[in-house]
Nucleic acid binder design. Structure first.
Length: 580
RNA sequence: CGGCGUGUGGCUCAGUUUGGUAGAGCGCGUCGUUCGGGACGACGAGGCCGCAGGUUCGAAUCCUGUCACGCCGACCA
């Protein structure tokens, strides 16, 4: 391929609306173009990258006996009624009607379609286990797309669904998939992806893992232990805290605390420690607006995911007005309005004397002892773990928190969909059973963008050779010079004949600086510079995009050198790939 | 859905306060000189100033509405 013919333009200035580097570089490099909010077209450069990622995914899915299928993008709402998700899923699911006023949805995930596909086929235990997968577009009407390809509304996803006759068999396959995923990320050049325990959210099921690429621009907070292998998404991370040396008690006193609406205000006013204060965070149930009050120690934050799981239904941050039973800014667990549900976080346990709101405008209690003063003090884990916190696994104070991008996930779904959608098989004993499912996803475009985010310099992406748009980039400086052009042409032909993926820049009149800048933006791992200057020494220059290798190679040996270098780069990636 | 912000050639932006013939740089085209990290000169093409109303002799500029995009938050299998 000649660069002169490549569709998509590269330019110098950073687009104003790009916040993260990978987004800016991919727009500047002619990888993608924005069509609408969270909607992008892939130019040929990016399409070549995503096609390579897809090929790797296909190979690994096939290697664990996956069978590729293709589900429709538009599904009748009936199917989503069966699982109950037509109602339960929020606005991310795009609902619409067709010309006959039939309710339709744009599939955002395909559990329903998967069950629909195989429920007649798999009526006997002899058909199990099996896995089907597809690589296809998804549409999710995200509230707020951002960061270029990282969070979009329409995207390509590999989604896989496995069916089993026992939990043990699911777990066995889940483990296989776990390793297949490791291989996918390793082969894509990012062996540093880590798995974390996660909350399974609306998918249902119990055990799930997310594959996270750690980077400061990631949207998820990842909890890691420095002493052991514990890793979890903040949403799912257990917070352990034992209050020590805070057990001394005092008498309960109601004290006037004018204009003290935040914990900081109150503690400053009373000259008390924030670690013996009780903070109220108020939510409301989506169903009936019942208040749900979460009490946590003043220096902790509420983990809404854990709270939501505890409440058992959807909640949202509350809006408290003067007519409500709660007094904003002065809410405390003692004498709280009976209409409100409340939960005490484990960070409050063991504190002998707390400062808390008095449920009365302008007043707080001091000396509150939950065990003594409440009828029943029960504690639940509803707070976010903090840096330096106690590891739930090894018990050491070694928790650290980092940011990450979720590039894949695996779930043990259980029978949620097979039950609701009435999928059954006959077991060895002639009994009807619901199969157990697992599901496994990878966002292809997000993966490409994430790799760019982690592997780039100031001038462009540094693609791993396994997913790079091309393997070799030949720059012919001074294509108007016949001798130079002849050498570059010959190298280009040799590469093509050898099946090397090569992009050839033989544009006349383009100055070296511009040519190098374009090459940087394309991020091809091996660059060959053919120029009159190099040819004076009868050499071409071969340099890797990461600058680790930079050599003058005699023209006669150039092709062999390039070919060998290419093999070396692949070998380097394959070193880190675990064997099955 | 709340808060903030931005819409002016393909891109980055000025011009809006104080209404008076639409600008610059990059990019694009032609010609020439250049040629190892986004060269220079000359000439040229390209914009109903997001859209719709209104005020005015006159609106990119003022007013109203609306749409789009971005950021923060909420939400997120």
């Amino acid at each position: 391929m000649k660069l002169a013919n490549l569709i998509g333009s590269r330019f110098k200035e950073r687009p104003a609306d790009c916040v993260i580097d990978s987004h800016a570089l991919m727009v500047r490099g002619g990888y993608m173009k924005n069509v609408g909010n969270g909607i992008y077209t892939e130019f040929p450069v990016l399409k070549r990258i995503t096609a390579k990622i897809e090929a790797i995914i296909r190979q690994e899915m096939d290697a664990i006996d996956g069978q590729e299928v293709l589900f429709p993008v538009v599904l009748p709402a009936d199917l989503w009624d069966e699982s109950g998700r037509y109602e339960s899923v929020g606005n991310e699911l795009l609902r619409f009607t067709d010309r006959n006023h039939s309710r339709m949805v744009l599939a955002m995930t395909h559990e329903e379609a998967a069950v629909h596909l195989v429920r007649e086929y798999a009526q006997s235990y002899t058909k199990y286990p099996f896995m089907i997968y597809q690589i296809q577009r998804k549409f999710r009407d995200e509230a707020r797309p951002r960061a270029g390809m990282i969070r979009v509304r329409e995207f390509t996803m590999k989604d896989a669904y496995s069916f089993h006759t026992s939990q043990a068999d699911l777990e066995k396959y889940y483990d296989k998939c776990y390793h297949a995923y490791n291989r996918i990320f390793q082969r894509a050049g990012i062996p540093e992806v880590v798995t974390v325990a996660s909350d399974s959210g609306m998918m249902g099921g119990s055990i799930s893992h997310e594959y996270m690429l750690l980077t400061p621009v990631g949207e998820d907070s990842i909890v890691l232990c420095k002493e052991c292998d514990y890793r979890a998404n903040m949403e799912a991370a257990e917070n352990k805290l034992v209050n020590e040396g805070k057990d001394s008690t005092q008498d309960l006193q109601c004290i006037e605390t004018p204009d003290c609406k935040t914990i900081e205000d109150v503690c400053r006013f009373l000259n008390s420690d924030v670690e013996t204060s009780c903070k109220a965070v108020v939510y409301q149930k989506n169903s009936d607006d019942t208040f749900v009050v979460a009490f946590v120690r003043g220096d902790y934050e509420v983990n809404e995911t854990k709270l939501r799981n505890l409440v058992g239904e959807e909640i949202h941050p509350a809006e408290i007005t003067e007519e409500d039973c709660l007094v904003a800014g002065y809410i405390g667990p003692y004498q709280i309005a009976e209409e409100a549900e409340y939960y005490l976080d484990i960070t409050l346990k063991g504190i002998g004397s707390l400062v808390a709101g008095a449920n009365k405008e302008g007043f707080h209690y001091t000396g509150l002892n939950l065990e003594r003063d409440l009828e029943k003090a029960e504690y639940a884990d509803i707070s976010k773990i903090k840096e330096g916190g106690i590891c739930p696994c090894c018990g050491k104070k070694a928790i650290t928190i980092k940011r990450g991008i979720e590039v894949g996930n695996i779930f043990q779904l259980g029978t949620k969909y097979t039950k609701t959608m009435n999928m059954q098989y006959t077991d060895e004993n002639g009994n009807l059973q619901h199969p157990i499912m697992g599901c496994y996803g990878i966002g292809v475009g997000r993966l490409a963008a994430s790799i760019c985010e982690v592997y780039h310099d100031d001038f462009g992406p540094v693609w791993p050779i396994s997913i790079a748009p091309w393997e070799v980039h030949i720059c012919c400086l001074r294509a108007d010079d016949a001798e130079t052009k002849a050498v570059a042409d010959k190298l280009y032909q040799e590469c093509m004949q050898a099946g090397i993926e090569v992009i050839y820049d033989d544009r006349e009149g383009v100055r070296p600086g511009a040519m190098f800048s374009d090459a940087d933006l394309l991020g091809v791992p091996v660059r060959v510079v053919v120029s009159p200057r190099n040819l004076k020494e009868s050499c071409v220059e071969v340099v890797t995009r990461d600058k680790e290798i930079k050599e003058m190679v005699p023209v006669a040996e150039a092709f062999g050198f390039i070919k060998e270098l290419k093999e070396k780069l692949y070998a380097k990636i394959n070193e880190s790939v675990e064997t099955i």
